[in-house]
Design a protein around this nucleic acid. Structure first.
Lengths: 352, 352
DNA sequence: ACCGGCTTGGAGAGCGCTTTCCGAAGTGTC
DNA sequence: GACACTTCGGAAAGCGCTCTCCAAGCCGGT
């Protein structure tokens, strides 16, 4: 044991466990035990070791630790890269979309307290997918949260086959035994339909998202089902791609095809914003001439004028739940596959 | 060399370099050389090895590799966690703010092509800071991009002292020899002042951000300077905290104190949105009664109605440049410290 | 005194990889 | 045909850590 005192330098190297052991006058094993809080260490030695840690400024090397423990203390967030061609028409939009940030915020709220890091991964090609799964099997991350994948992406199946703890946000397009957290999109769309019908709209259209993502198809089918139940066997539908521009275009098209439309359900708030712009340009007042209901209750909904009546999508909560679910499966590898479905609710503001 | 053929299983283990070597009938060293594209390997062996890689489904273990190469192929994105108390009043907002997403998008556009991963880190306490620097020194990440730090955060200095490659987005509040990429915030604010003055506004106010972040103070000083140069030695100023709500409040206050205000420069688009709401509530028409200029040119600017005249903040480009700068410094440790300043430009829309 | 059972700390193997060092071939020159 | 010189592949030493052994010490019971 060295005299209590100032910092101990070990050259310009980063101090290692070995250095701490030398300073404390014990073996590496003992230092390791102390650091990891394993019992069976004499309280006095315990103190000596911690003191040496302080003196040397030792920080455990996570890489080395992970190599042997097979635990990295990291989870990966995987986002799809398929739609991003060359210089990023899609990607820029995807990250800037509040969707991404809300998910990250929700995940971090849980991971942070668990001392787990988040690593961002973009996956597009088969090679990248194989690489990702390989990295995961190698223990680079303890688990993975999968976000926003195109419909027939083989990744979910690959992950389950590899036995990697995984959770999807939004259900997989094809039935795969994978954990997921989702919103009852169909119910939410039904809420919108009910509200529009309830306020007396006669000709109600819908602006949907792309046809190949489950969240989008569920909103379509839920909307249609409820409309049909109220005698509207058919509803005018135009599809966009969840961007503001596409919403504006879609609304213009809808207006052109059905000038008498007096209510519209738009499958997300961003497109609803675009729809609002198109309606204003066409001289229609909202909600007097045309009532508009959005989806997501994102920050855009309150920013809009008139403020959007919309379906609340508790994305942060869902992301947080995904993180918890994932952490559970990391802890206990043979927990059974489960899914959590959130119920949406209608937030009535001014647009409908 | 085994016969050409199907996959080779190695039990339920993940295949290692050793397995590949055995299958290929060579030594680990040779496989390593082939994988890493080091010359001096007989082309024929080369082929045999790659074939074995394919058969075994081998994916190099990055952890093990990093441990010896001292290169992780990862950069960390550090965001401040100081303002987040318990259950996240701040954090949720921060991540949902387009600012965060735009930065991530910009970073990824560069990192992705370089095959570098991004790991998210939140830092609030001294302990977390020390841990982060330690992890970095241990080679957990090759470098770090620092985002949105409170004014007197010691992190920048700690990073330079530790000799860790680092780039800040937004200049440090105190002079620290650290790389950074920033926007000429003062010039941008001057642009806004010029525009407002140019369209004939007589009583021009400003809604600023918090007083302790450089981006905010620079906008204030730039605005004041230009106003003073045109004979307005003093301008009414109310501060917010960059959120939509705070902008609404600030605008109300400004209106109450100076009912005759006919122009206002708001230090970011989100607050400008709030200001628009307050103005509408007060019965003022924009831009006829009050002209509004925002800052950022975020998606909120086009979403607003009337669409915001604003100062373009090329955040994606800046983030991409940060990534490039960082990668350069990772490559060559003794590149000299440098900074890149982007020039903003005014985007004229309807609000002014 | 002796022995079984307990606690405690050290020695050392090994996680999967890179890389230095060397010896064994292959190539050219006089 | 002997020599230096080059090219190539293998053996083995680590990178920093954890964790399984195992030995040493200590207790009370006989």
């Amino acid at each position: 044991m060295t005299a209590a005192g100032g910092p101990v330098r070990v050259g310009d190297r980063v101090p290692t466990l070995e250095d701490v052991a030398r300073v404390a006058g014990v073996s590496r094993a003992t230092v390791s035990r102390v650091i990891n809080g394993i019992r069976n260490v004499d309280p006095q030695l315990h103190e000596v070791v911690w003191h040496a840690v302080g003196q040397t400024g030792y920080v455990p090397n996570r890489l080395a630790r992970s190599l042997v423990t097979r635990r990295s203390g990291t989870v990966a967030l995987v986002v799809s890269d398929t739609e991003s061609h060359d210089d990023d028409p899609f990607m820029g939009r995807f990250f800037a979309d509040p969707y991404f940030g809300r998910v990250v915020g929700g995940l971090m709220s849980v991971l942070r307290t668990a001392g787990v890091q988040l690593a961002l991964q973009m996956v597009g090609t088969d090679q990248q997918r194989a690489r990702l799964v390989g990295d995961l099997r190698n223990g680079q991350a303890d688990g993975v949260v999968v976000l926003s994948l195109p419909a027939h992406d083989p990744l979910p199946r690959m992950l389950t086959d590899a036995g990697v703890p995984a959770v999807m946000i939004g259900r997989p397009a094809e039935p795969v035994p994978i954990n997921y957290v989702d919103l009852a999109n169909d119910t939410g769309a039904g809420l919108a339909a009910d509200h529009l019908l309830g306020r007396g709209c006669r000709l109600i259209g819908m602006i949907s998202g792309p046809a190949d993502v489950p969240a989008s198809t569920d909103r379509i089918s839920g909307f249609r089902r409820t409309m049909a139940r109220h005698g509207h066997a058919w509803v005018p539908l135009v599809s966009g791609n969840f961007t503001q521009d596409s919403g504006e275009h879609a609304m213009r098209d809808l207006l052109a095809a059905h000038p008498g439309v007096d209510g519209v359900f738009v499958a997300n708030d961003l497109m609803a914003l675009g729809a609002l712009t198109a309606l204003r340009a066409a001289g229609r007042r909202v909600p007097d001439d045309v009532a508009v209901v959005g989806f997501d209750d994102s920050s855009a909904a309150v920013a809009a004028s008139p403020a959007l009546t919309t379906v609340r999508h508790p994305l942060e909560d869902m992301a947080a739940e995904s993180a918890r679910l994932l952490l559970g499966h990391v802890e206990d590898r043979n927990l059974r596959v489960s899914s959590v479905i959130y119920e949406p609710e209608l937030v009535v503001r001014q647009s409908a």
